[in-house]
């Protein structure tokens, strides 16, 4: 099980996966917007998205849970 957390405060600009999706290590899960940059958040493990905690337009803080891959 791998928890994907936010590295920095950001807006959630795009969500590219849904709960139940299969992902591979390195796939883009969501794209954050911060410091006028679009920053992809990548899967660090292969598996199924069991939890997805963010939606487009959300503001997330450093350390917030984005998704869980099992």
């Amino acid at each position: 099980m791998a928890e994907v957390r936010a590295e920095m405060v950001a807006n959630v600009w795009k969500v590219l996966v849904s709960e139940g999706d299969q992902v591979e290590d390195g796939d883009t899960l969501v794209i954050l917007e911060s410091m006028k940059m679009e920053i992809p958040v990548l899967a660090e493990d292969s598996g199924t998205i069991s939890t997805l905690k963010v939606a487009e337009g959300d503001v997330i803080q450093e350390g917030d849970l984005i998704a869980v891959i099992e």
Binding site: E7, M8, S34, M35, M37, I39, P40
Partner: peptide, 8 residues
């Protein structure tokens, strides 16, 4: 490295 913290 822009991939991490936007490179800040």
């Amino acid at each position: 490295n822009p991939m991490r913290l936007g490179g800040c």
